[in-house]
Nucleic acid binder design. Structure first.
Lengths: 178, 178
DNA sequence: CTTGGCATGTAAACTGTTACATGATTCT
DNA sequence: AGAATCATGTAACAGTTTACATGCCAAG
């Protein structure tokens, strides 16, 4: 289960509660490993039971106590071991591409419409990545160093979104002039 | 369930047995919607029960009869309806990127090694896409026309794999000179 | 006074993967 | 002799999504 290892990696960078972690995931690992808070809480429990994490309860008034997780030697070992395993290649699951695949069932206007909205969606994502990248590039050096690999994964996201932009534009041009 | 609609789309292009379809999926929709034969057979059954497909048994000696599925008006209607729904954006799930995210736990040699093997894997995929694209571009015009949208989705795959190549190379250069 | 954020979870439903099963044919 | 291809499936398991549950606080 990669999510568990993703969590170990995140916690290794910085301890936090389930809530913290799900927020942080949304702006980092979530880009290439989407996950909901339900999954995250469950995975944290399991890691705790396996003895890979420590918890400290942080009492709060008027809301549930925060359970701050931190990684311990056993967790770090587990993560190390997993890091050395080979990765199986990416799996993309994109319903939009299934739709394009079936585009012979659309008329031209509809196709252009779909391409435009697809492009728009990916532009939003690209914009978000770019803003985050600019933001990270202005962090102080130590933090920037600590998160350098996160920054690299973000860069891949940017390249991939740029590929989408190019593709959507080319197709729109192709079918607009027809 | 997108797989069902993917199957409807594929069958709409050309009827075939579960086996045929899983072969064809491997070289088309499988690029952005991976699926195993078990899922495919199951989905075909369900579509049949829902009355979206017709079957014709093709008896064979010495091996199970082929069950040739073809789309019917109801199936086409279901597909049409689904095509008009908006797509939710792509979900990438890539364990390799989780590993890179945790790369502070690798030494330089290990990182370079992993980047190289990641690049290699994606190069394989890129090569496969490129060969298939060249092949498709030499099809006779009618077939090329029928599969033009499949060809477009392939092009996106090529762009995305090129993005991976660029990224892997840049990172290798960055960490090699350090 | 409603929306969104904080903070944690349970449960059911759905989807996807892995292992197993059968059995002939062709290629190496 | 062993592996790959053809051809279809079942069953168990793993993973993911969606819905539900609670309850306070702050901002508009």
């Amino acid at each position: 289960m990669s999510l568990k290892h993703a969590l170990l990696g995140l916690i290794d960078l910085e301890s936090g509660s389930g809530y913290d972690l799900s927020q942080r995931i949304r702006n980092s690992i979530g880009f290439f490993w989407p996950s909901t808070h339900q999954q995250i809480y469950k995975a944290l429990h399991e890691l705790l039971v396996e003895g890979c994490l420590d918890v400290e309860e942080e009492p709060q008034q008027h809301r549930p106590d925060r359970r701050i997780y931190s990684i311990n030697p056993r967790g770090r070992e587990k993560l190390q071991k997993w890091l050395d395993e080979p990765s199986q290649p990416t799996k993309i699951r994109d319903a939009f591409l299934i739709r394009v695949f079936c585009a012979h069932l659309w008329d031209q206007a509809h196709l252009l419409n779909q391409l435009q909205s697809g492009q728009h969606q990916h532009q939003q994502v690209l914009g978000r990545y770019q803003r985050l990248a600019e933001h990270m590039d202005q962090w102080p050096e130590d933090r920037r160093n600590r998160y350098q690999y996160a920054r690299h994964t973000l860069q891949l996201g940017i390249y991939i979104e740029e590929a989408w932009q190019r593709w959507c534009l080319e197709l729109q041009e192709l079918y607009a002039q027809k």
